Amino acid sequence: MSWHHLRTGKTLQQRLAQFQGHIAELNTPRSGLEPGRIQKVFPRNFIKVNHQLFIPLSLNSIRVFDIPRTRRGERVGIRTTFPSRNAFRNIRLVGVGIDYIELQGKGRVPSRILFPLSSVESIYRPFRRSYKLKRTCIRQR
Rank of each mutant, 00 (worst) to 15 (best):
P116W: 01
N90P: 01
N60P: 08
E74G: 06
V120Q: 12
F115T: 01
G97M: 07
R44N: 09
E34Y: 10
H51I: 03
H4Y: 08
G77A: 05
Q39A: 15
Y100W: 03
I78K: 02
V109C: 11
K48S: 06
L103I: 15
I98W: 01
I47H: 14
E74A: 08
V49L: 09
Y124R: 06
F88S: 02
S2Q: 11
S118V: 06
Q39K: 12
A17E: 12
L53G: 07
S122V: 11
F65T: 07
L57M: 04
I55W: 01
S111I: 02
S61F: 01
I101E: 01
G107W: 10
R135V: 14
L53Y: 10
N50C: 11
E121M: 09
R135P: 07
G9Y: 08
K40R: 15
I55P: 04
Y124C: 05
W3C: 05
G95R: 06
R72K: 14
N90S: 09
G32R: 03
I62N: 00
E34S: 09
V109E: 14
S84H: 05
R63Y: 01
I138Y: 13
Q104M: 14
P110C: 14
S58M: 02
P56C: 04
Q140C: 14
F82S: 09
P116N: 12
L33I: 14
G105Q: 00
D99P: 10
T80Y: 02
N27C: 02
R92W: 10
V94T: 04
P126G: 00
E25P: 01
T70D: 05
L93C: 07
V76Q: 03
S84A: 14
P29N: 01
G97C: 07
C137V: 09
T80P: 10
E25K: 11
F115E: 05
Q104T: 07
I101C: 05
